[in-house]
């Protein structure tokens, strides 16, 4: 691969996957600024190892693998436990109704509270568009384990959106 071809390939990967990798990074580390650094470092490493990517169809999984390793290697130990939604979203323009915005924020908060073993496969599926089989390969799990985890993740998130059950007795007013 000559220099120009290498650069074209790299640019195409960055344009196609940087945004989704950033979103995956945000939910992985729970911090907007750190996710940015994580994605930048992922692409630095991707550039160095670009010649090892033989199958362009495997590029997405390849980049996710780099990002996850980089996170484990460099960033994970530097991340304080974060459950503050302001670390995840800096500023956002939205056309959602106030009710939808509330639900969205509830879901985001619930995502931050999910254990990694549930949130990570869910984000790989819902954000990165990986299949159950691809997630299983990425996380070194069986497919049935992945299915159980994404099921539980959705179940837990859905519970958060349910209105709280009424407490005590309801007395009819006369």
């Amino acid at each position: 691969m000559n220099d120009a071809e290498r650069k074209r390939r790299f640019d195409a990967l960055a344009r196609q996957y940087a945004d989704d990798l950033f979103r995956f990074g945000v939910w992985l580390c729970g911090d907007h600024a750190l996710a940015n650094d994580l994605v930048q470092e992922t692409f630095v490493r991707a550039w160095k190892a670009l010649d090892s990517l033989k199958d362009s169809g495997a590029a997405k999984s390849w980049l996710i693998t780099i990002l996850r390793r980089e996170y484990a290697r460099t960033f994970e130990r530097k991340v304080p436990p974060i459950t503050d939604i302001d670390n995840v979203v800096v500023a956002e323009e939205s056309e959602l109704t106030p009710e939808d915005t509330t639900e969205r924020d509830m879901l985001r908060k619930a995502m931050l509270e999910l254990e990694d073993k549930y949130s990570e496969p869910l984000v790989l599926q819902a954000v990165m568009g990986l299949s159950i089989a691809e997630i299983a390969t990425q996380l070194e799990l069986t497919e049935s384990a992945v299915m159980t985890r994404v099921f539980r993740a959705r179940e837990k998130l859905r519970e958060k959106l349910q209105p709280p059950a009424r407490q005590g007795n309801i007395h009819e007013l006369t």
Partner: peptide, 8 residues
């Protein structure tokens, strides 16, 4: 909507 956080 919730997962698609804004990208820099």
């Amino acid at each position: 909507q919730a997962l698609n956080v804004p990208v820099p």
